[in-house]
Design a protein around this nucleic acid. Structure first.
Lengths: 240, 240
DNA sequence: CGGCATCCGGGAAGATACTG
DNA sequence: CAGTATCTTCCCGGATGCCG
């Protein structure tokens, strides 16, 4: 036999689950390795090829190219040329692509409960900002308003807290009550690792400018879900 | 060769994203092909190896074995031996495993909006039942109570609607207002495909016993999200 | 029959080097 | 800087066979 149809769908994995379940179809579309992480990095706005590579250490150029082609093929991202003369090109999520954020949030909440989760691993600035949206606890932000600026690896981000809601964006820091300058893992150490700001400052890992009390309140607003109880998982008899 | 390959971390994918992001870690755990679909099939209770194979046409025995080992290794499922003499063995989700349902729901909602989604593909009974939980619209079930029995490929399931909530379980049909007898795709045709019950009955694809009006109301309670607009261009600005 | 090991072919992922 | 080309490695999927 020659080449019988490998893909009924253009530009996508030759193998499909062949399942009408919406989740199975979503996995057909974005279940390949790196696909969802590429989308994650675009969640705060368009990025260039090189910026994606830098944010995803471990992905190789050819795989990134393939994923971008695939995501473009399904309509999750679009390729745009920037106005000025330069050959600058950026990749941007489509509106439907942005709607994938709940997928990342449910994955993040579930994955954070794993005992194997290692928060000391590298973390991209975008991941940190998205984690604020995911882990924000409105109850802890009662009667609290703040504008937090973050300068992470040279890029500027803003987190706005108010009326029990949180907003996180990549944009110029303006009228911030506090500005953190450092790396995403350093901020994560304060917010999720319980590392005191003073310790991070002493290490030179983080610079905290502005209202100290606001900074200290801010880092308490994002409680991690409790780790799973390992004893409940091994409740079965027999199997060594 | 002897058997001394015991990886320190049991049966995890050799390659990791090396990313502190919770979503990335979740993908390390259950991002392999078939893993999430295996969990999906266990969402309504434990199943045997053969039942999983039957529900996931396309998976091969060795891959299913690998996935079950992997999911057991991370604590998402447990292997249980059944009481009677037989060598019967079942695979069951742990409490943490059950918590993965929001992942499937967000994937399902997103995937259902894809223009490439083909609802005519095969569908497992469990997928159908989970889709009821995912797509249920409380507003449409206002002042509606019903007990729907489904006999799908010989297995019995119940859907209970009441007080704006839905429950779906694999259990004996009892006191049902309506009983559907047929296959999951046939029921999906009525609920999601807009196929009239009379047409399905005429085809012999579905048998509907009980209160007709309740059956006809029931199949309107699960609206699919609208397909994406292909003409919609790109999204938000933002520079790098 | 259920569960698991082994072997093999095809193809995707990963690393490196190269080009416009 | 933005990809492309090439090569290697490994996973997926199918078939077969062993053992309870």
């Amino acid at each position: 036999m020659k080449l019988e149809k490998t893909t009924n769908i253009p530009s996508l994995p030759g193998r499909s689950y062949d399942d009408a379940c919406g989740a199975a179809h979503a996995l057909d579309l974005i279940g390949e390795r790196w696909a969802l992480l590429v989308m994650r990095e675009l969640m705060l706005g368009p990025l260039r090829f090189g910026a994606l590579r830098a944010a995803l250490p471990g992905i190789s150029a050819n795989v990134l190219t393939q994923r971008l082609e695939g995501l473009e093929g399904i309509g999750a991202i679009v390729r745009r040329r920037l106005p000025p003369p330069g050959t600058a090109q950026v990749y941007a999520l489509t509106p439907w692509g942005y709607e994938a954020e709940p997928i990342m949030q449910s994955l993040g909440r579930w994955g954070a409960r794993s005992p194997l989760h290692d928060p000391m691993l590298p973390l991209s600035p975008v991941s940190l900002m998205l984690s604020f949206r995911t882990m924000f606890d409105p109850a802890r932000a009662e009667d609290f308003e703040a504008r937090i600026g973050l300068r992470l690896s040279g890029e500027d981000y803003m987190v706005r807290i108010g009326r029990g809601r949180v907003e996180a964006a990549r944009e110029a820091i303006e009228n911030a009550d506090v500005v953190f300058t450092g790396t995403a893992p350093a901020v994560a150490g304060a917010v999720y690792g319980g590392v005191p700001l003073t310790a991070l400052e002493a290490d030179g890992a983080l610079e905290v400018d502005g209202y100290r009390t606001i900074a200290n309140r801010f880092i308490t607003l994002f409680p991690l879900p409790p780790k799973i109880d390992v004893t409940s998982a091994a409740a079965a008899p027999g199997t060594s």
